[in-house]
Simulated assay, not measured.
Amino acid sequence: MALLPLATAGAIWTAPAKAEDVTIGAIEILTGPNSRYGVAIKNGFDLALDEVNKTGVLGGKKLVIQYEDSAGNKDQAVNAARKLIGISKVPLLLGPTLSNEMFAAGPVANEQKIPIVGTSTTANGITAIGPYVFRTSLPEADVIPVTLKTAQAKFGIKKVAVMYANDDAFSKSGYDVFKATLEKLGIQTLTTETFGTKDSDFSAQLTKIKSLNPDAVVVSALVEPASGILLDARSLGFDEKVRFIGGNGFNSPKLGDIAGEAADGTMVGSPWFIGKDDPANTKFVAAYRAKYKDDPDQFAAQAYDTLHIVANAIDKAGAADPEKIKTALQAAKYTGVMGPFSFTENRDPADASGVVVLEMKGGKFQILK
């Protein structure tokens, strides 16, 4: 796929001709298998956008989001970033959805000095791309250790098998965190099995794993292969006592939709839970259900808070100027459905204290008790 050139090679951002509205860009997966994540994120953005424009946060100006569909393709994400920066002249980008897309598109934004904010990019090294790259999603390095420590304490897990997709930056990064944490906790790894993100048959890996009799199976994968692994495991007669422990890719209600009862007992860590007893969260869930006739997930919640954080930063910047927005973002403080939020000096979320461990039961996640 040919990459679009920027409107002017090496050009620094200049304001668009019209200043009545403030238009920002968003690159999300809106079609294809991983649109489960991107559509939820878009829903979260749009719900918050309605609120921002009703409350007049920008002093009467309207905030507008121009969406570009990456379809989960890195080249398409890069093209989208180039189009939004070079042609649409946006002062800020949201997304992309997946970490491997951010590793491709993030450098484009950083080179052009345009802030880019990932809401679902959890791989190690995201904000190391450059000083214009932010993320509001907790990295796997903050979440996975909480999940494994909880599993070890509650179920006495001593030996595990590990599976991960070796052709995806997010899944590989999650595996690296799982591996390091298992070693730190003294949990034995019996075998490590790999697969591709587009694979649909995991019987060979799972047959080997079953023969080793692990206490749990640790998996780093996106929701499509994760669901296939659970379905294959149950069809091979895995004991129900064998827990499947996932990374952030598991953290979608689609896991229960696709895998059904095969997903029961699956564990995952999350910085958000739909049943969180908090007025802001209760209001968000009710508004989301009213607008979309569906339940929000973690990705929608993170996007919802992010849009409010971004709108406040644009307001404090006083203009749709990338440099001023970047400065305002770095100083952002906001309390939303995810709880209190601010950025570290490295532009990652500052507080990981809100992580909870969830368990799938009857196709729904609930807090592990």
Rank of each mutant, 00 (worst) to 15 (best):
N79I: 07
Q112N: 15
A151M: 14
A109T: 09
V133I: 15
P107S: 13
N110M: 06
N124D: 14
T122Y: 02
Q66T: 13
P107N: 14
P131Y: 04
N100S: 14
A104N: 11
V117N: 04
G156E: 10
Q112T: 10
A153I: 06
R135V: 02
P91K: 02
K89A: 10
G72E: 03
T121Y: 02
S70R: 06
S120P: 10
V143F: 00
G118Q: 08
T121V: 13
A105C: 12
I114E: 01
P139L: 03
T119Y: 06
T97A: 04
P115Y: 01
I114D: 01
D142F: 07
I126Q: 07
E111P: 04
A151L: 14
D75R: 07
I114M: 10
A161P: 05
G106M: 11
E140I: 01
I126V: 15
S88N: 14
P131K: 12
D69M: 11
G86L: 04
F134L: 09
V133R: 03
S99K: 06
V108R: 10
S120F: 00
K172H: 00
V143H: 06
D75G: 15
A161Q: 07
A141S: 15
T121Q: 13
I85H: 04
Q112C: 09
M163K: 03
G95L: 11
A105M: 08
G95P: 06
P107F: 10
T147D: 03
T97N: 09
G95H: 08
I114T: 07
K74W: 00
Y132C: 01
K83Q: 12
M102H: 09
I144R: 02
T119W: 02
D167I: 11
V143I: 14
S88F: 00
A77T: 08
S120R: 07
E101N: 07
Y164G: 07
G125I: 05
L94A: 03
Y132M: 13
K89W: 01
E111R: 11
Q112K: 13
L92V: 08
L92R: 01
F170N: 12
A161F: 05
G118L: 07
F103E: 10
T122F: 09
N124A: 15
D167P: 13
M163T: 11
